[in-house]
Structures are given as structure tokens and as C-alpha cells.
């Protein structure tokens, strides 16, 4: 009762990184509230899940190991999780804001009639005063998220409904190992049969094509990112040259992706990845809030922009006033000479 639950999404037999990030955050919240942290995983042959989740702070792991749960489909996963929540009555339930999480979480919240906040960028605890009744409720989850195209940030609370549900995008919460690698908590193996109905299987997966992510943008120490100001796909190639030289990765804004300069898996910002590299080189990026929110915690920010008033310059440590086409080849050239 009253514990914190984290849904652990599986990518093959690997627990998704966003789920481990949520366990890291969940550990913090559980400690502050003095409750337990539970991880929940559904799938087929989950033997390696315990060793993956316990280092990140879970006290309890619920497993639903069943052939029929091999790949995610909405209805069976909803049935299992709703029934588990009704039995366990957690106060907080967190999911990754992935395609799966964004399909599953609203379905669950609608079934349980509880409140859900999507794509949170921060989770905190605090009190809320109900203006109508004058009642103050302590230790509520503050689900903090951008809204209105990223131009405002709203703090959302669920005063009266449980669980308080939130989804969080990958990369937003830092990964924190709080336990030794070999720590083993309590594992509860549930019988999925008791949670499923035949009618849950009306939607069938016919085919699935998954391409593993080709870049290591999230873990890169140096990110060379391009915006619409890069101008062309050819110019974008130069960013790759610079990134390779600095042992980094290439990122992009939504505008650059929409313009076809590069692929969606490189998009940084609210609707893409959140990154925190040591060095972020922003090339031809004006700095819309949607993009900045995905990179503002970078160590050193270098902005290359022909517009001296570009908003991104105000958060940059170094600003080079010039076009990407002119500056990037020079950077490559002088770096090769000096290093």
C-alpha cells in the first residue's frame, strides 16, 4: 500500500534505459516518503530482469512471465497492470513516455479514473492547498511538464485520486545506481492467467520491424548539433566530420529533421532526446525553448550563428558570430593543426 511503482519496459530482454532512469528517480521519492519502490515487468522469459533492475533501487519486483505477453499490446498489459494496481494500491505510478508508455498510461488512467500527466521534465514532492475546502494535502507528487508548445511549464497535482500517474521521456532523469550489482530484492512471480481475459487478445501483431538505434547520442561527451541554419544535407555532413574528430555525436533540432537534413533519431529537445554532454556545439540553431529544454544542462555550450541576437547565444559560454558553412570547416582545420 502507498508504495511507488515503476513500469519496466522491455526491449527484447533488456530493460529500457528510461525505466532504469525512473527507478533511479523513484528511489529518491520512495526514500523521501518512507515507502518501498516496486518495479513491474511483463513479458516472455524475464530471467535477467531482476539483475537489471535491483541495482537501480527497486525493493520489490513484480514479474508477469507469460508467452502471450511476449510483445506489448494494449489490452492485456492494461488488464494486468490495472488489476495489480487495484491489489497493491500504490500512491505513485511512473512510466516511460515511450510509444508503449504513451499508449498504455492513458488507457490505465482512464480505467482507474486517476490523473495522468504526460512527458514530465521534473518530479518533486510538495503540498497543495485546495482553495475550495481550504484543505492542505502534503507529500503530493508534483508532475512538472512543459505545455503550450514548450512556452510555459505547468506543475500538475492529483490531490484526491490514486495512483498519481506520470510519464517521463528518456534521458530526462539521470541514471543512478544506488545498490551493489549483486543486490537481490524481493521477486514476486505472478500468474498472468489470473490477470488476463481471452477478450484481451483481440488485437494481433502480424509483423514487427525494429531497427536498433544507430547512434550513441545520449551517452556522447561531445554533441555537435545542427539546426535549420545549417542549410542543407551536405552541410550537415560537415557536422559529422567535426563530431568524429571530437569523438562526439551529431544531434539536430526538430526544424533540421523536418527539413530532411538528418533523421529523427538524432532529434534533441522536448519531442526528442534530452542530452547532457560535456560540450554542446550548436550550429545554426536559433534556440527555441523546445530545443533548449533538451540540452540546457550541457557542460559547455558553444553557439555558431550568423545572427548575433539568436536566443541560444544567451545560454552559450562561447558564441561565434558567423555562418556554419564558414565556421565549421575552420574549426575542423585549426583543431587538426593544433591537436
Amino acid at each position: 500500500m502507498n508504495d511507488i511503482f515503476v513500469y519496466c519496459e522491455l526491449d527484447g530482454d533488456k530493460v529500457a534505459e528510461v525505466s532504469l532512469e525512473l527507478l533511479s528517480k523513484g528511489r529518491q521519492l520512495a526514500d523521501a516518503l518512507g515507502v518501498e519502490l516496486h518495479a513491474v515487468a511483463l513479458g516472455n522469459s524475464l530471467t535477467t530482469v531482476p539483475q537489471q533492475v535491483f541495482p537501480y533501487g527497486a525493493d520489490v519486483l513484480h514479474l508477469f512471465d507469460d508467452k502471450r505477453l511476449d510483445n506489448y499490446t494494449t489490452l492485456p498489459y492494461t488488464s494486468v497492470l490495472c488489476k495489480l494496481i487495484e491489489e497493491e494500491k500504490p500512491q505513485i505510478f511512473l512510466l516511460g513516455a515511450t510509444v508503449v508508455g504513451r499508449d498504455l498510461a492513458p488507457r490505465i488512467s482512464s480505467t482507474l479514473e486517476s490523473g495522468l500527466t504526460a512527458d514530465c521534465t521534473a518530479l518533486e514532492l510538495g503540498s497543495y492547498e485546495d482553495k475550495k475546502s481550504g484543505r492542505v494535502i502534503d507529500n503530493l507528487l508534483y508532475s512538472i511538464r512543459p505545455a503550450f508548445g514548450g512556452n510555459i511549464v505547468a506543475t500538475i497535482v492529483n490531490p484526491y485520486h490514486r495512483p498519481q500517474m506520470a510519464t517521463v521521456r528518456e534521458g530526462v532523469m539521470p541514471l543512478v545506481k544506488t545498490r551493489k550489482e549483486d543486490y537481490v530484492g524481493r521477486v514476486i512471480e505472478h500468474c498472468a492467467d489470473n490477470y488476463l481475459a481471452e477478450s484481451d487478445f483481440v488485437v494481433r501483431i502480424i509483423e514487427r520491424h525494429v531497427q536498433p538505434r544507430e547512434n550513441n547520442l545520449k551517452g556522447a561527451q561531445v554533441v555537435v548539433a545542427g539546426g535549420y541554419g545549417v542549410g542543407s544535407k551536405e552541410n550537415f555532413e560537415k557536422l559529422h566530420t567535426l563530431a568524429n574528430l571530437l569523438h562526439g555525436e551529431v544531434g539536430a533540432t526538430r526544424a533540421a529533421v523536418d527539413a530532411g537534413f538528418t533523421t529523427h533519431d538524432r532529434q534533441i529537445g522536448q519531442t526528442g532526446l534530452t542530452v547532457r554532454p560535456k560540450v554542446y556545439i550548436a550550429c545554426g540553431i536559433s534556440g527555441q525553448v523546445q530545443h533548449i529544454s533538451g540540452m540546457k544542462d550541457s557542460g559547455i555550450i558553444i553557439s555558431i550563428n550568423s545572427d548575433p541576437e539568436a536566443p541560444i547565444n544567451s545560454i552559450a559560454d562561447y558564441v561565434i558570430n558567423g555562418s556554419v558553412e564558414e565556421v565549421v570547416p575552420k574549426l575542423i582545420n585549426f583543431y587538426q593543426q593544433k591537436s
Binding site: S114, P146, N151, V153, A154, T155, I156, N158, P159
Partner: peptide
């Protein structure tokens, strides 16, 4: 609405 907006801030 189970969710309530507690606060809205500009970015």
C-alpha cells in the same frame, strides 16, 4: 478532472 494545475510559469 483528477489533475489540477498548481502553478504555471514561463520558461
Amino acid at each position: 478532472s483528477p489533475t489540477k494545475v498548481r502553478k504555471v510559469e514561463n520558461v
